[in-house]
């Protein structure tokens, strides 16, 4: 099964990449990730303040500042994994540091 793990929070913490790299919990997460899955791709996303949303309506392109939907929690990272089943994806998600203050949404990849 392929899943996208959407790493979400409200951006109130936004630890830098260096801080994350030095975090033992993040290390434990990477270990769990490697043990339970094959990583097909991953990306940490810049804050939504840097995002741009594009919509085309009636042939007209609308470019706006900010995320697609205004919500408290936003996607801050995406990891695409291949693993045996949902329980493995859940185990990986629960070990991600963001799960403790934000949340991880597990979305099966449409194949």
């Amino acid at each position: 099964m392929k899943y996208a793990l959407l790493i979400c929070d409200d951006e109130s913490r936004s630890p830098s990449n260096e801080v994350l790299a030095a975090d033992p919990e993040h290390d434990a997460f990477l270990e769990e990730l490697g043990r339970r899955s094959e990583v097909l791709g991953k990306a940490r996303l810049r804050p939504v303040a840097d995002s741009t949303t594009v919509k085309v309506r009636a042939g007209e392109t609308l470019v706006s500042d900010g995320p697609f939907a205004e919500t408290k929690d936003v996607v801050g990272g995406v990891i695409i994994i291949e693993c045996a089943h949902l329980d493995d994806a859940i185990a990986i998600a629960e070990s991600h540091p963001y799960a403790r203050w934000g949340g991880v949404e597990i979305r099966p990849v449409w194949e």
């Binding site: 099964m1 899943y3 045996a84 089943h85 949902l86 329980d87 994806a89 597990i106 099966p108």
Partner: peptide, 14 residues
């Protein structure tokens, strides 16, 4: 089927 919920008795830790 689509989310890959396993057909199993969960392992001891779960």
């Amino acid at each position: 089927k689509e989310a890959g919920i396993p057909y199993r008795v969960p392992p001891a830790e779960l």
